[in-house]
């Protein structure tokens, strides 16, 4: 009974983690008990339509799950699952809008750290505004006894089989998102700054050294933005959901495969950094360039190994499903 299974999978999504398995097992047992009873009285198996009617009578999975939630103070449990879903979706949309509109700040005369802090506060401010507005809307809906059947209008046929879910650590996802966000800021800053100036001291003299990235990096600027941005969005999705599913695993595998190809292309560059020495002409800057190239190749190799390992783990997980 695929429709029943899809219903239970969907129902499980709205339950708290600690009681998810137990409550699902209980409802599953009860549903099949009732269906068997109905089949016995009819003397035949239930048709798709009869199963659909039964599930419609049972109620939207979100609404049934709300019965198992503790009562909330501001938004009561009847409205809470819909409120939580609306809040999640709104926060994602507005965070992305704020991030995209903040990109122009990268071109202003802001340091990287200043830019990161500015974006962080903008996202936080937008998130607070969204939280207040969505909470107010649902509070008013609750006060006006807005018809829950309109809020939870649905059809059992629309529920999809979401496949086996793999739980993930939200902390790891958050850490990865922060790292990827900072990388994107740093990466784009490299392209929109003329050069990286490094202050150093040599034999008691302060010198300024111009270092810039080679023109070859231009060819991978936007593809890296796309790959890291896609990974960031995927991590945001995993962070919200708390698990990986089949399609998100395939997206991750594709992203990693393309990343490895791009890393191999970068490894073929003739030059990574351009050092213009303005002082200390007799200093062997070529050695510095060689060491930098080796370090960059090592970093590329490590990233490629991590991507390969991630692919291996995902494929193993898919085979296990």
């Amino acid at each position: 009974m695929k429709m029943i299974n899809n219903y239970l999978n969907s129902f499980e999504n709205y339950l708290p983690e600690d009681s998810k398995d137990e409550v699902r097992a209980e409802l599953e047992s009860l549903i099949y008990e009732e269906l068997e009873d109905m089949q016995e009285s009819l003397g035949r198996d239930l048709s798709q339509q009869e199963q659909e009617s039964y599930l419609l009578k049972l109620g939207h999975p979100m609404r049934v799950a709300s019965g198992y939630l503790p009562n909330q103070e501001l938004i009561n449990k009847d409205y809470f699952p819909a409120y939580k879903k609306a809040l999640e979706v709104s926060l994602i949309i507005f965070s992305i809008i704020v991030l995209l509109t903040s990109i122009r700040l990268n071109f202003e005369d802001l340091s990287i750290i200043g830019f990161v802090f500015d974006v962080f506060w903008r996202v936080l401010e937008a998130s607070l505004d969204v939280f207040v507005v969505v909470t107010l809307i649902f509070y008013l809906l609750q006060k006006s006894n807005y018809d829950l059947s309109k809020l939870y209008s649905w059809s059992p046929k629309d529920l999809t089989s979401s496949g086996k879910k793999v739980p993930l650590s939200r902390f790891n996802r958050f850490f990865e998102m922060m790292f990827e966000g900072l990388f994107l800021v740093f990466w784009n800053h490299l392209f929109f700054s003329e050069q990286i100036l490094i202050e150093s001291s040599f034999m008691g003299n302060e010198i300024m050294q111009n270092i810039s990235i080679s023109a070859e990096w231009q060819s991978v600027h936007w593809i890296i933005n796309f790959l890291v941005g896609a990974s960031l969005l995927l991590n945001a999705y995993h962070f919200l959901k708390g698990h990986k599913n089949t399609w998100s695993t395939w997206v991750n595998i594709s992203n990693n495969l393309v990343s490895i190809v791009v890393l191999a292309f970068i490894a073929s560059f003739e030059q990574y950094l351009v050092i213009e020495s303005s002082e200390l002409a007799n200093f062997n800057w070529q050695k510095i360039v060689e060491y930098s190239n080796i370090n960059i190749l090592i970093i590329l190799g490590v990233i490629a190994l991590v991507a390969l390992w991630d692919i291996y783990a995902d494929v193993k997980r898919l085979k296990g499903n």
Binding site: E26, L30, L58, V64, G67, Y68
Partner: peptide, 11 residues
């Protein structure tokens, strides 16, 4: 009593 009321109540 509908299922959505009874089963959460028992829990």
């Amino acid at each position: 009593i509908d299922e959505g009321t009874l089963y959460p109540l028992i829990r």
